[in-house]
């Protein structure tokens, strides 16, 4: 279980949010909503351990999650606003590196997002929606307890959103947790809203 206790985040001298507390149990999903600049992306980076909270604690099963950042990183997948792709590498090569890290096979993950026919194409020539799907394919490689998704459906067509819905449902059925920042409707039935 992930538990945020009185979290605060500073960027420069400005407090983006403070006194933020919530809990996320097995199989649960939380939608982060709020205006631009409300701190949705900062919260996701903070939960991933990429930012240090100015105040408050982040607990995983009752223990300080950020005490062992490598251990915390191993149980999460972070999908940032950028796609984290290398444009000179093919779709398969982009995934192959992460498959070496986490396990799983690039082919299966590509098929999951409907990218199998594009496997050997360099990421450079993919459309922005296809690049987003390739970034999402990282989620399909191997299971992780916590998914932190920053605007996962930007640029996706309806069929791809449905594929993401399948991934999310399977992840949650296996006890996985999801925290997603979004302005668009996401296929996350029963998700709670957290307004920043």
């Amino acid at each position: 279980m992930l538990e945020a206790d009185n979290l605060a985040c500073l960027r420069g001298e400005r407090a983006i949010f403070a006194g933020l507390s919530f809990t996320l149990g097995l199989g649960e999903a939380v939608l982060l909503v709020g205006a631009n600049g409300a701190g949705k992306s900062s919260l996701l980076r903070l939960l991933a351990g990429l930012l240090t909270p100015a105040e408050g604690r982040l607990l995983w099963d009752g223990e300080d999650a950020l005490a062992d950042r490598a251990g915390h990183a191993a149980r999460l997948r972070y999908l940032s606003h950028q796609d984290s792709l290398k444009l000179a590498l093919t779709a398969r090569e982009n995934l192959a590196f992460f498959a070496r890290l986490w396990g799983g096979t690039p082919e299966a993950a590509l098929a999951e997002l409907g990218l199998a026919p594009l496997a050997e194409l360099p990421a450079r020539i993919l459309s922005s929606g296809q690049k987003r799907r390739l970034a999402l394919a990282r989620l399909a490689l191997a299971p992780a307890a916590l998914w932190l998704l920053d605007e996962p459906t930007v640029g996706l067509d309806a069929a791809s959103v449905a594929r993401l819905g399948t991934l999310l449902a399977r992840h949650r059925a296996a006890g996985g947790m999801v925290l997603a920042a979004t302005h668009l409707p996401l296929p996350l039935p029963g998700a709670r809203e957290l307004r920043l």
Binding site: A48, L50, A73, Y78, D83, S84, K86, L101
Partner: peptide, 10 residues
């Protein structure tokens, strides 16, 4: 391109 975040979490 966001790869650095993934490397830091790798």
């Amino acid at each position: 391109d966001g790869t650095l975040d993934q490397l830091l979490l790798s």
